[in-house]
């Protein structure tokens, strides 16, 4: 009986954990697919998006090293079959601002690419990209909670940003609630098992 109860508890705990994982995965994330930088070549930095729901519009600045890269254009992205029509403008020599607005207000959900930014590699050196001032909006004109990851440059040191991101993972209150409830369930179940 005790062995059986132990098995059930473990099984229950596993289900709770797995049930929580997909929720965490629903967080919209942005990442940049950084190409290999070879002087004299043309490269494309792809801005990827994952797990977005009802996306209607958005914007971001992409910052790059102007000694190494020179922007040549920004191409539309897509999520599934839906095109992400972009407009862009160079804010200064090292920053390009990209905006997009889907047709109508029906929105799109899923994962894909927001834009592909083409660069000419004009020099030797570090060709890293940073995203700044990013914003995604849904079909009700509300901001979409987005994890801009380490690509976000907002004056905070990159290492510090990494540390903050780790802290965030550790302090998600939803997990505390799940674990507490799981513990309570286990205690109740054990008590009931002993009564039998």
């Amino acid at each position: 009986m005790e062995k059986s109860a132990f098995f059930r508890i473990c099984f229950a705990a596993l289900i709770v954990v797995f049930a929580a994982v997909p929720v965490q995965a629903q967080q919209t994330t942005i990442s940049i697919n950084t190409p290999e930088i070879v002087e004299g070549s043309t490269v494309y930095a792809t801005v990827n998006i994952d797990n977005v729901e009802n996306l209607d519009a958005g914007q971001f600045d992409l910052i790059f090293n102007p000694d190494v890269l020179k922007i040549i254009g920004v191409e539309n992205g897509s999520i599934g079959e839906t095109k992400i029509p972009v407009q862009w403008r160079s804010v200064d020599s090292k920053t390009v601002r990209v905006i997009f607005n889907l047709e109508g207000v029906t929105g799109v959900s899923g994962s894909g690419q927001l834009a592909s930014i083409g660069f000419e590699v004009i020099g030797d050196g570090k060709g890293e990209f940073l995203i700044s001032d990013g914003l995604l909006g849904d079909t009700e004109a509300n901001s979409i909670d987005t994890d801009w990851g380490i690509t976000e440059a907002s004056g905070i040191d990159a290492d510090l940003k990494d540390a903050e991101a780790e802290d965030t993972q550790k302090t998600v209150p939803g997990f505390e609630v799940v674990l507490t409830l799981t513990g309570l369930t286990m205690a109740i179940y054990l008590a009931r098992s002993k009564q039998r």
């Binding site: 929720v23 901001s143 939803g174």
Partner: peptide, 28 residues
């Protein structure tokens, strides 16, 4: 056990989601 766990999971979902809301990024 299954029913209890399902209920618990459903109850926990909003809490998990709100946790992420607290970390929301607001571009300005």
């Amino acid at each position: 056990t299954f029913v209890s766990l399902l209920l618990l999971t459903l109850l926990a979902l909003p809490a998990i989601a709100s946790g992420f809301e607290n970390e929301s990024y607001t571009a300005n």
